[in-house]
């Protein structure tokens, strides 16, 4: 930890982009140092007084956020080269890591930029639709309890269900690119989540069929970056392995039984 008093200012280097097809550029902002800042509170200060280090008036930096508690997944960005949520990115920790150096903010590179640090993650939500990401209940009428579940099974499903569609796993994945069709670790995790529920499993074959299409689970290169950057420790590599085995079994069934 940098001792209070040593650090007088914090320098932010921010990669900006006015629109999706505009050229990116860099702006530098200098803020007075205080203890216990996070990246979001610094962006809020910049919004209130958008003046660069050189003293030039500019526009506030645009970014996506909501809960600020690292549970909604909105404020993901690349901070000093590491993808993470900006609400839980503590300035003191970042300064400690760089010895008081600049803090560099960039938008995620695997999604189209809307403006500045705000990217369009529609692809992630569309993928949830593709895999039938729901439990097909009969309706909202009173039909009694759901299926019983062991605490171990609940623990597995709870771990998968903490995925907040933030995109960290996809930013870190060498296989998931801005312009290819790989479905990515988060969606594979969700496929397992629904397949592991007794009623959700009714659609398991449909989900596995999607996973066998081009861009499905076989496109995973096993780099295992996803699980390292996941802020919620979702068991992504376990999901990839399990879904991979289930698709292999389904492929055999297609081959020998034709269904």
């Amino acid at each position: 930890m940098i001792a209070p008093g040593e650090q007088k200012t914090i320098t932010f280097r921010i990669r900006r982009q006015d629109k999706q097809d505009a050229q990116p550029y860099w702006e530098v902002f200098e803020l007075p140092y205080r203890l216990n800042l996070n990246v979001i509170s610094c962006l809020q200060q910049i919004a209130e007084n958008p003046v660069t280090k050189e003293g030039r008036q500019t526009t506030p930096v645009v970014w996506d956020c909501n809960c600020l508690e690292e549970i909604c997944g909105a404020c993901t960005m690349v901070i000093n080269g590491t993808v993470q949520q900006s609400c839980s990115a503590l300035v003191d920790k970042l300064l400690e890591e760089t010895g008081g150096g600049d803090i560099v903010l960039e938008p995620m590179s695997k999604f189209p930029v809307v403006r500045d640090l705000w990217v369009d993650r529609t692809r992630m939500f569309e993928n949830l639709k593709r895999i039938n990401g729901w439990v097909p209940i009969d309706g909202t009428h009173d039909l009694g309890e759901g299926p019983k579940e062991s605490p171990e099974q609940q623990e597995l499903r709870y771990g998968l269900s903490r995925c907040m569609t933030c995109g960290c796993c996809l930013e870190a994945c060498p296989q998931f690119l801005l312009d290819n069709d790989f479905i990515g670790a988060s969606t594979i995790g969700q496929a397992l989540y629904f397949n592991e529920h007794k009623t959700g499993a009714v659609l398991a074959d449909e989900r596995l069929d999607v996973m066998m299409e081009p861009g499905g689970v076989n496109d995973c290169g096993n780099a295992q970056n996803c699980v390292k950057v996941c802020p919620k420790e979702v068991p992504l590599t376990l999901a990839i392995a399990k879904i991979g085995r289930q698709t292999t079994k389904r492929a055999f069934r297609y081959f020998f039984a034709g269904r």
Partner: peptide, 13 residues
């Protein structure tokens, strides 16, 4: 009950 049927991973005994 409905949330349970929707698959909410409620803690279990």
């Amino acid at each position: 009950d409905l949330l349970d049927r929707m698959g909410v991973p409620f803690n279990r005994t």
